[in-house]
């Protein structure tokens, strides 16, 4: 797939962090991902996410992958 091909995946990190009263910095520390990369993910600029990152975020936020990502065509 061309890297600049459009997608319709929406990341709901903002909402999840609000609901849990957690900052992005705290999540970055818990997940072990740099704040910059997590910010890229939060702002929908990421092109791909590792299963390990997704799994770590799910564990840190006590949620399922479907709570973080959705497809909005």
């Amino acid at each position: 797939m061309p890297a600049d091909e459009e997608h319709h995946i929406v990341v709901h990190l903002d909402r999840l962090l609000d609901e849990r009263g957690m900052t992005l910095t705290e999540l970055a520390e818990k997940v072990g991902v740099t704040l910059a990369n997590l910010s890229i993910l939060k702002n929908g600029r990421a092109r791909a996410i590792r299963f390990s990152t997704l799994s770590a975020i799910c564990t840190a936020l006590d949620c399922q992958p479907g709570d973080i990502l959705s497809n909005a065509p």
């Binding site: 890297a3 890229i40 990421a46 791909a48 996410i49």
Partner: peptide, 8 residues
């Protein structure tokens, strides 16, 4: 590399 860019 282009594919990996934006991978988190």
């Amino acid at each position: 590399r282009r594919d990996v860019e934006g991978l988190v």
